[in-house]
């Protein structure tokens, strides 16, 4: 068994719901984000194409962070989930540097000022800290909501199928861009998606074999190696400077596209 995730880039609509769900699920400190959304913008003559990449720990099969950790605080479970034992972590940050995906965060004091800096912690925060005691001075990252998976499986639920055994970000995604399941099961939804759409991993050349796969029609999938327009996240989006003269001035562009030669 190896838990993994498939992220459909064509469906992601940049709502940040997965980021928020993760934050709420784990009572994350104010300046710490486990699941993130990064945007890649291509500006071709004023026509903007934006692709968004939801990123989180890739739970690699051959994780450099685990190999780098000097205390065995980082370890890989039999089900493929890469974990950090905060009680063993010494805060050397070697894993933060060794992770090729930059998905680990060192929790320093200034990253945890409380949800309302300058004020006392709310009851919500205090209760959250009992459930998830984030230790200042240690490293953190996405854990695939391991607590939900373990509790759900103990009740006979199936991760990726039953909501109470599935990561919070997957449950929350309203576009159904995230799919969770067993990568070792060829009949699982994730395996089928990877096969059907030729799923790819980020930076596969590192040989880390991430458990997070991406599918879209742009990379590795379509023979044309280009997304159909309707699948582009930034379809119909135009850079402000191409339609608004004031915006063009603010952004240092001399003219609005189409009016250049007038």
């Amino acid at each position: 068994m190896r838990w993994g995730m498939v992220i459909n880039l064509a469906k992601c609509m940049r709502c940040h719901a997965c980021v928020a769900a993760c934050r709420v699920e784990h009572f994350l400190p104010l300046h710490v984000t486990w699941a993130k959304l990064i945007a890649h913008e291509v500006d071709e003559g004023g026509v903007v194409d934006v692709s968004t990449y939801p990123v989180r720990c890739n739970h690699c099969a051959d994780p450099p962070c685990v190999h780098a950790c000097p205390t065995e605080a980082s370890y890989r479970r039999e089900d493929g989930i890469v974990m950090i034992d905060s009680d063993k972590c010494i805060g050397c940050r070697y894993c933060v540097i060794a992770c090729p995906y930059q998905n680990r965060t060192f929790l320093s004091k200034d990253k945890d000022p409380g949800y309302f800096p300058g004020y006392a912690k709310t009851g919500f925060e205090r209760k959250g800290r009992k459930l998830y005691p984030h230790q200042v001075g240690t490293t953190e990252k996405c854990n695939f909501c391991v607590e939900r998976i373990d509790a759900g499986m103990a009740k006979g639920r199936r991760p990726g199928i039953d909501r109470d055994a599935t990561p919070a970000c997957v449950n929350t995604c309203q576009a159904r861009a995230l799919t969770f399941g067993d990568l070792d099961d060829p009949e699982s939804e994730v395996s089928k998606l990877i096969r059907k759409y030729n799923g790819f991993q980020l930076r596969a050349e590192y040989g880390t074999d991430p458990s997070v796969y991406y599918i879209d029609y742009r990379i590795g999938g379509a023979p044309s190696n280009k997304a159909p327009e309707h699948a582009r996240t930034g379809y119909n989006m135009k850079h402000a400077s191409t339609v608004d003269r004031d915006a063009a001035r603010r952004l240092g562009r001399s003219t609005v596209k189409g009016e250049a030669k007038q």
Binding site: C69, P70, T71, E72, A73, K88, C89, I90, G91, C92, R93, F106, L107, S108, Q135, V136, G137, T138, T139
Partner: peptide
């Protein structure tokens, strides 16, 4: 530099097999 300096011994064999 360590976030948890008092745990430094955890990085020294035989306390770790890393």
């Amino acid at each position: 530099y360590l976030g948890k300096p008092l745990r430094f011994w955890r990085a020294i064999p035989p306390f770790t097999k890393a």
